[in-house]
Simulated scan of single mutants.
Amino acid sequence: MTSAVLAGSTGRVGSHILTTLLALPSISAVFAYTRRDLAHLTSHKLTPLQSLSPTDWPSLFPTSPPPQLFLSGLGTSKAAAGSFENQYKIDHDLNLALATAAKHAGADTYVLISAVGASATSRFAYNRMKGELEEAVKALGFEHTVIVRPGLIVGQRESAGAAEVVLRSVANGLGKVWNGLKDPWAQDSVVIARAAVAAGLACVEGKREAGVWVVGMGEIVRLGRVEWRE
């Protein structure tokens, strides 16, 4: 049985990670960071790590005994944060602080929802931010570091811009015709979530060698839909 901690439990991907974890018999306990009430989820497995101030979150990481698996779907948009600087504080700084807390607590496996094109040397600020986070968490030296890199995330997003809304609509339309037209560039949020959980459990259960595992778009589809079994 595996215990897990999740950051970003109310987001597009994170909310699906949470419901997926709670539904799996192999998961014994789930600790979920949140600023919102999770009363709509009734499960004896669920322990909310709730604080209105995310700066308190690292100090709330469970330590006795330490969960084996930590997953992060934590992130925001520039529009929601108010500026790129504020977005960086959440997407990079808070994520890194939580990963550091997980490492210090003794978690073995860390799973990060990143983004396609993430690179610390990218000319684009968003991709560079994601790449800098990837490099920082890899340097922490988890036994297993899983970096999930989806393309366009298809799912609800209140703060999405007009261009993203159009692209999501196109992706949804193509997916109804044939998933092969969508999968190479856009993935459903629930499929990404299931892939993240599947990859994390494969590491915890000793099915992957130690090190860094970058899960790209094709592997997301394979793990999260083609091979997914609850």
Rank of each mutant, 00 (worst) to 15 (best):
A4L: 03
V5G: 05
L6C: 09
G11S: 09
G11Y: 13
G11Q: 07
L18M: 09
A23Q: 12
L24P: 00
A29K: 15
V30I: 09
A32W: 00
A32P: 02
T34V: 07
A39E: 14
T42R: 11
H44I: 03
L52F: 00
P58E: 02
L69W: 14
F70E: 05
G73W: 09
G75Y: 08
S77Y: 01
K78C: 04
A80K: 15
K89T: 15
L94N: 01
N95G: 10
N95P: 08
L98E: 07
A99K: 00
A99P: 03
T100A: 09
A101P: 07
K103M: 10
G106S: 11
G106I: 13
A107T: 15
T109K: 04
V111H: 04
S119Q: 03
F124S: 12
A125Q: 14
K130T: 06
G131Y: 12
G131E: 03
E132C: 02
L133F: 09
E134V: 11
A136T: 02
A136C: 01
K138F: 06
H144D: 03
H144N: 13
V148D: 10
R149P: 03
G151W: 05
L152F: 05
I153D: 10
Q156K: 13
Q156F: 09
R157T: 02
G161D: 15
A162L: 15
E164C: 00
V166T: 04
L167D: 00
A171E: 05
G173V: 02
L174I: 04
K176L: 12
N179R: 13
N179M: 04
N179C: 00
L181T: 05
L181A: 08
L181S: 04
D188P: 03
D188L: 14
V191H: 06
A199N: 06
L201Y: 02
G206F: 13
G206T: 13
G206N: 13
R208W: 11
A210F: 01
V212M: 03
W213A: 14
G216N: 15
M217K: 15
M217W: 00
E219R: 15
E219N: 10
G224V: 07
W228S: 08
